[in-house]
Amino acid sequence: MPVLALLSAVFVVGFEQLVQWQYGLTGIIGLLLLTIGIKAKEPTSLLEALRAPSRTAGLAGRIAGRRRTHYIEEWASVLAGDPEHGVTLSPLRRQYYALGFVCAAVRMRLHDLLGGFWTPVDWTISTRQRSNFFIASGVGVQVVMIQLHDGLYVLCTDGLGWAAGCGIALRLLVGWLRQVRGIELAAVDRPDADDE
C-alpha cells in the first residue's frame, strides 16, 4: 500500500510539473479549477462523465467574462466534435480540450485585468523624446546613487561603465517593448536648410 501511495504521489507531482512547464501559472490554476469541478460531483454514469468537459467549458466561459460569451458556444461545438464526418473525441481528449479552454479563459481574464497597466508604458515608449527621457532618467539615478554611496572616485573609474551598461540595457528594453506592443515611431520631416 505505501508503494502504491508513493507511486500515485510521484505521478500527481510529475503531472503537475508537466502542466506548469507547458502552460505556466494559468495551467496550474486551470488544473486546480478542473480538479475542484470534478471533485464537487463525481460522475455516477457514463452520460454524466461525458458532460464533465461541457461543465468545465461552461466554467471557462464564466471565467472569460461577459465580453466573451460567444466562446461558450464555440467551445461546446469543439467538444461535440463532428459525428457526421466521423470526428468524435474520446472523453480524455475532451477533458484535455476543456482544460485548455480554462487556461485560455484565465489568460483572457488576466489580459483584461492587466491591460490598463500598459497605458503608461505605451505612452512612454510612443515618442522618441519620452523614451530618451526615461533612459536618461534611469542612467541619471544610477549615477547619483553611485556617487552618493561610493563617492566620486568610484563613479569616475568603475561607475561610468555601469551607467553605460544601464543605458544600453534600457535602450534595448525600450526597443523590445516597442516591438512587442507594435508601436512604430512616426518619421520626422525636417525642412532642408535650402528651403528656408
Rank of each mutant, 00 (worst) to 15 (best):
S45A: 04
F15E: 08
I146K: 02
E74N: 04
A9N: 07
V19T: 03
Q17R: 02
E196H: 13
W162Y: 07
A5N: 03
R181T: 09
W75E: 04
L99W: 04
L173C: 14
A52K: 10
W123E: 14
T35Q: 09
A49M: 01
A163P: 04
D189T: 13
P191T: 11
A80R: 04
G165I: 00
R109G: 03
L99M: 10
T88S: 11
A163R: 00
C156M: 00
G115L: 03
L46S: 08
Y97C: 10
F117H: 10
R93L: 14
G30E: 10
M145H: 12
Y97F: 14
D150K: 02
L50N: 09
L33W: 11
L31R: 12
Q20Y: 00
S45L: 05
L59I: 12
I146W: 06
R181L: 15
E196C: 07
R68E: 02
M108H: 09
R128F: 10
S131L: 10
R68T: 03
Y153A: 12
L185F: 08
A136S: 15
V106R: 04
V188S: 09
V144C: 11
A186Y: 07
L92K: 06
T69N: 05
G65H: 05
R67C: 01
A57H: 04
G116K: 00
V188A: 08
N132M: 15
E48F: 06
L110A: 01
F133A: 15
G100M: 00
P191V: 04
T69E: 13
I168D: 12
T44K: 12
F11W: 02
